[in-house]
Amino acid sequence: MLVVEDDSDLREVIAILIAEAGADCISCGSLAEVQAELDAVLTCHLAILDVNLGPEQPSGVDVFHWLRAHGFRGDIIFLTGHGSTDPRVIEAANLPGAQLLSKPIGAAKLVQLASQP
């Protein structure tokens, strides 16, 4: 499972929970880190992408396009703390095949996602 989240605390706590659930997790804080992990990333069945990856940084939507362009076939879920009127959130919600979840999601939901085949 791939997690792309610019907040290091959240990235680490998600990695801990997923590891405790028995799944593998690749944590990245930006598109550049995802690009550096290309081979490992393409083996993931699920990617959870934060929509906003920080000011002046490529967004989760950019990561989505990059992943699809490089043959990522797994499910992609956007996780956002922004409201539904944010332009990037609207863009993410309209991407084909993507799902949008609002922060905070429960631990059970996260573990359930990580456990899906």
């Binding site: 959240l10 703390g81 999601i105 429960g106």
Partner: peptide, 11 residues
């Protein structure tokens, strides 16, 4: 700005 820290606390 509150939602990400809340997510950290929740998890």
């Amino acid at each position: 700005r509150v939602n990400t820290p809340l997510q950290v606390l929740e998890l």
